[in-house]
């Protein structure tokens, strides 16, 4: 179990996370939903140890989380320039000798002998994901993993997530595509202005659309109508 306990974080004056608490179970996929700037990426960076919260703790198996147990897929993965896909995977899978890149690449279909700089956005996402999978860590934080993927890759990723779930991993993922979260997740938490507004279990997923519509978009709708009526 990964527990986020009353985490606070601010960038200068701006409070990004405000007393945020969440729990992620092993063998579960937990979705985090929220508008741009709601604090999703900041939350991931705190769990991953890239940012230090001003208050609160991240607990894994009753201890403060050891960030080397976490695999983190960034929204826009970054790579060292002039590095081949094969080299990247070779370096990352260094401690997992059983990882067979060739079998995995039958699914991902990446030109691993080419430089990553020449990859498309989706390919970069896939090679980063492959790298994280190769490390076989118990916690996976996937920030917008479906961004830029083609239809086939989206289906493949859905299948991979199912299998990783069976391996009892803790998987937390964000996406702006609600349907993707509904298909993959056991729970979806809705983040708004740095705190969890509501957590939906699978049986309540059908209410998410109505919830977002009623609480969030009403204001924007009236503003947009005002702009276009001018």
């Amino acid at each position: 179990m990964l527990k986020i306990k009353s985490v606070n974080f601010s960038y200068g004056e701006e409070q990004v996370l405000d007393d945020l608490s969440l729990e992620f179970k092993a063998g579960n996929i937990h979705g985090v939903l929220g508008a741009n700037g709601a604090g999703k990426t900041t939350l991931f960076q705190i769990i991953y140890g890239l940012l230090t919260p001003s208050k609160g703790d991240v607990i894994f198996s009753d201890n403060n989380v050891d960030t080397s147990q976490i695999g983190y897929l960034e929204t826009e993965p970054r790579f060292y320039p002039y590095m081949k896909g094969a080299e990247y995977i070779d370096l990352l899978s260094h401690r997992s000798p059983s990882f067979d890149v060739d079998i995995w690449n039958e699914v991902f279909k990446l030109p691993l002998n080419k430089l990553i700089d020449t990859y498309s956005t989706g390919m970069k996402k896939k090679v980063a994901l492959l790298g994280i999978i190769s490390q076989d860590k118990p916690i996976l934080l996937l920030d917008e993993p479906f961004n830029g993927l083609d239809l086939e890759s989206v289906e493949n990723l859905n299948l991979i997530l199912k299998e990783l779930k069976k391996e009892n991993k803790i998987i937390v993922l964000t996406s702006h595509i609600l349907e993707v979260l509904k298909i993959n997740c056991d729970k979806i938490s809705f983040l708004y202005k740095g705190s969890v507004q509501k957590t939906f279990s699978k049986s309540g997923f059908q209410d998410i659309n109505t919830y977002i519509k009623s609480d969030i978009t009403q204001h924007s709708e009236s503003v947009i109508q005002r702009i276009f009526s001018q």
Binding site: E74, P77, R78, Y80, L91, L92, R95, G131
Partner: peptide
């Protein structure tokens, strides 16, 4: 001029 990702640092032999 480029800093590698945390994963690459972790994976250093």
């Amino acid at each position: 001029t480029h800093i590698e990702s945390k994963e690459l640092i972790e994976s250093y032999p």
